[in-house]
Structures are given as structure tokens and as C-alpha cells.
Design a protein around this nucleic acid. Structure first.
Lengths: 166, 166
DNA sequence: ATCTTTGCAAATCCTTTGCATCTCT
DNA sequence: AGAGATGCAAAGGATTTGCAAAGAT
């Protein structure tokens, strides 16, 4: 746990230095928040977390840092339902994973599926593309007791239309 | 072609009337533009198309109309690379399709794949969700002669990172 | 009369930028 | 000194909303 964390910080520092950039106190605090409590947080939520530790960090710095970490492939961004980007630490050499989001409680489950990846590759090839990247998010109703969705009628197969865009 | 168009307008009118809403001149012009030249256009592009026909239509009306048509399941929205929503007529009872977008020239190809749909369903079920909707966009490099991408080195397997979010 | 729509401008939300000020080296 | 970073406030782009005027029933 702590070892993993140290490794993460070391990775950040290393990738930054490769581009002659520094692991400043602000960036360090952001990277810490990101690791400890930052899964699928958007910039504003990260900003709040960071502010608890360091009142001097500005909004813009969080944006700039997230952009930077993305460019260094240290974090990856997702867009689920709302309009904001949500980040997660990108494991070095990790397999790609996708997300399944509950429409009601926003609970997020990550999953990996080789079959999907292979299919996507095949589809792209068939259509004359070299596949470089993809984005896939599944939306559904989860069955957790805690989900408010369980309290109400969970029976309609014909739910309220599918408006998945932002 | 014209028959299809008439059918589309009739559908729009019907769905609107079911909710006590009218097919106003503005909405009609928007629906026309959408049908004739509106595939994967965003609001601003639609606005331009519409203005060619009717100078009095306002920006807000296009936004409001698209939102309305979405709620009526008459159009569906997608987010490809840029931050804006791009629309397409949603065929009544049509099979769902997904998109493959060229990173270089933004050329969009639509495809349907039952296998993918089935897999998604299986994954959701396995993880304790009732699948309601999904969003999938593949990004790649297309091989069309016209694509600027073909002019340059198309050889790097390790392209410029994968930052697909907005 | 009443309920729906509209255009306009102002407001909102997320994100980026300009700029003067620091901080390291 | 000189490049890299930061905070703040202003700017940007996409979308929504308040409001008074216009339309339809």
C-alpha cells in the first residue's frame, strides 16, 4: 500500500523529470490526492481534496496538472454521464479497462474484457481503420441494496429512453 | 427518399402531438435540416443550415428543439472527439449502431455488431447490472486516399498516446 | 384567456489562458 | 539570469435559462 504509493510518486517524478519538469509541492499534493482518494474524481472534486491539505493550490493548477499527467500517460480521463472529465491513475503497462455505470446511483464498476477488445480490433480492420483507441461505457441499473433504484419499480424493461452523451 | 422524408416529418409531428406539443415552423425547418443534411452535425452547424432557410430561428431554439427531439427518441446524440454533441435521426425500432472515427480527418463510419451487443449484455449481467444503454466509439487512422494521415508516416504503432475523453 | 414557443441576452458550467509574480538551478 | 510554475482573474466554448413578446387553441 505504502510501497505502491511511493512507487507512484516515484513514477510521477521520473516522468516529469524526463521532460525537465518538476514535482512541485502542488503537483505532489495533487498526485497524492489522486492516489489516495481520487478515483473517478473530476477536477473540482480533486481541487476540494487538495485544498484540505494545501490551501494555496489554485483551480488552474489542478487543471494544468491533470492535463500534464495525462500527456505523460500517468492518468487517464473518462467522461461518464456529466460533462466533466473524471480521472484515474493509469497503471504502467496495465491492461485497458472499461466502465459500467449505474444510471441511478452513479456507482462505477471497472472491467476488462479481452473478447471485446478483439472484436473492436476486428471491426476496425474490417472497416479499413487501424484502431488506436476506444471509449466504451455501459449504463445500467445496479442491483445493490444501497441503490435508490431498488426502492422503486425496477421492472420496466422500457426505461426512460437512452440519452447517453454527456 | 421523399417518402422517407414525409414519414420522418409525420413521425416528428406525431410524437410531438402525443405530448401536446406543436410542430412549429422553426421545429419543422430544424427537422428538415436534420434529415437532409444533418448527420453528425452539432448544434452550431445545424443552426447554420437552418439559418439558410429561415433567418429568424435563434440559437436557443435549436438547442431546445434538439433536447426535445432527444426526449422523444427521435434523435440520438453522440460525443466524438470535440466537446459538442452531434446528432442523428434515430430510426424507429432501428438496431443500435456505434461509430468509428478517424483521428485525423474525422471521417465517421457507422457499424452494427450483434456480437458486441451480446457481450456487453453478458458483461453487465455478470457484474450485477441490468444493461440499459451504452456508448462506444472507436478511434483510429483510416486508410482513405483523401485522409491527410496517409500523406505522413503511418507507420508508428506507438502513436501519440490515447487521450479520448472529450 | 391560456398554454406553448420563441428570440434575445444573461447566466452557468467546465476548461483554458494571459500575465505578473515566484521558485528553482 | 533563465526556464519552469503558480495564482488570480479574465476569457472561451457549449449549453441552459429568465423573461417579455408572439402564436396557437
Amino acid at each position: 500500500m505504502t510501497i505502491e504509493f511511493d512507487h507512484w510518486i516515484a513514477r510521477v517524478e521520473h516522468e516529469l523529470s524526463r521532460k525537465n519538469q518538476r514535482l512541485t509541492p502542488q503537483r505532489r499534493v495533487i498526485a497524492e490526492a489522486l492516489f489516495h482518494d481520487g478515483v473517478h474524481r473530476n477536477v473540482d472534486e480533486l481541487y476540494q481534496l487538495v485544498r484540505d491539505r494545501d490551501r494555496t493550490v489554485g483551480h488552474a493548477t489542478v487543471y494544468r496538472t491533470m492535463k500534464l499527467l495525462q500527456e505523460l500517460d500517468l492518468v487517464s480521463a473518462n467522461n461518464f454521464a456529466d460533462g466533466s472529465a473524471r480521472y484515474e491513475v493509469a497503471g504502467a503497462g496495465d491492461a485497458h479497462h472499461d466502465h459500467l455505470v449505474c444510471r441511478t446511483c452513479d456507482h462505477i464498476v471497472e472491467f476488462e474484457d479481452d473478447q471485446v477488445e478483439r472484436l473492436q480490433e476486428a471491426i476496425a480492420t474490417r472497416l479499413g481503420f487501424v484502431l488506436r483507441d476506444h471509449r466504451m461505457v455501459l449504463f445500467g441499473d445496479c442491483v445493490r441494496q444501497a441503490c435508490p433504484n431498488r426502492q422503486t419499480s425496477n421492472l420496466r424493461r422500457t426505461g426512460p429512453g437512452s440519452h447517453a452523451t454527456r
